[in-house]
Amino acid sequence: MELEILKEKKDGITIMNIKGAINAHTVNEFEKALEQCLENREFKLLINCKELDYISSAGLGALMGVIETVKTNGGDIKLCNTSNSVYRVFDILGFTELFQIFNSLEEGLKAFNKNG
């Protein structure tokens, strides 16, 4: 399987564990998972990229497609455990200004608990 998404909940925060690649082929699955979160009114999303091989612009587009709804509902999308190459994609386009990225899952969870 090229993309696997496993969801878990911790302290009211939805953690999405991503495994594989997010590109134009797999992005529908990623979008579906994000939309399902919105339907469930899960607006605090922490995307764990520990096993994410790579993300293309299709994946960034999927995040942009839901971020407004997430923010207007008092939530946020944060990321953690990105590899250098995944971080670089976010950073080079300025996406790190919109999406906070943390070195570990614990730091990401802590940031939600601190800032809401």
Binding site: S56, S57, M64, I67, V89, L93, G94, E97, L98
Partner: peptide, 17 residues
């Protein structure tokens, strides 16, 4: 990109990368 991120736009990022 400034406007892109402020207005939550989509698309056109592939060529930028």
């Amino acid at each position: 990109m400034k406007e892109y991120l402020e207005k939550y736009k989509k698309g056109g990022l592939g060529i930028m990368l």
